[in-house]
């Protein structure tokens, strides 16, 4: 998803049961997100001001975003990609830096489309 070499995107390890064996096959986050339909709009509905993020001490968005869209960069900023967003609101609710996140819904008909929900 991101071409920035400073962004680490670890492959999630297989889930193991306490009895040892792998219970679920190893699944990359990309594979997890590939199970979800996104009708990506041209307008980034969320933008992040990396300048504000550089002085943020919690980086709460990084671990809390269920779609893993906030990637810390080597210089202490954040690289954000809006394309595979659940539109849940977690990021602006937990954000530690006033004005860092500008949050809107995608234009009508765009964005995530859940078929089960």
């Amino acid at each position: 998803m991101s071409a920035d070499p400073s962004v680490a995107r670890p492959l999630r390890a297989p889930v193991r049961s306490r009895h040892g064996g792998a219970v679920y096959p190893a699944q990359s986050f990309e594979e997890r997100m590939a199970a979800v339909e996104f009708r990506v709009g041209t307008r980034p509905h969320i933008t992040v001001d990396a300048a504000v993020c550089r002085s943020c001490t919690t980086k709460a968005c990084v671990s809390a975003c269920p779609a893993d869209l906030f990637a810390p960069t080597a210089d202490g900023g954040i690289l954000f990609n809006y394309e595979q967003c659940f539109e849940c609101g977690t990021c602006y609710q937990v954000c530690n830096g006033a004005g860092a996140i500008t949050w809107t819904y995608p234009d009508g008909g765009h964005g995530v489309v859940f078929h089960h929900g």
Binding site: V15, R16, S17, R18, H19, V23, Y24, Q27, E31, R32, M33, A35, V36, P66, A67, F86, C88, G89, T90, Q93, F114, H115, H116, G117
Partner: peptide
């Protein structure tokens, strides 16, 4: 992966992942 839950779900294939407040 909990020992009580794992046998109920074993082999289940991910169909959708989602989140909501």
């Amino acid at each position: 992966a909990h020992p009580t839950i794992e046998p109920l779900l074993r082999g289940g294939r991910l169909r959708e992942y989602s989140a909501h407040l």
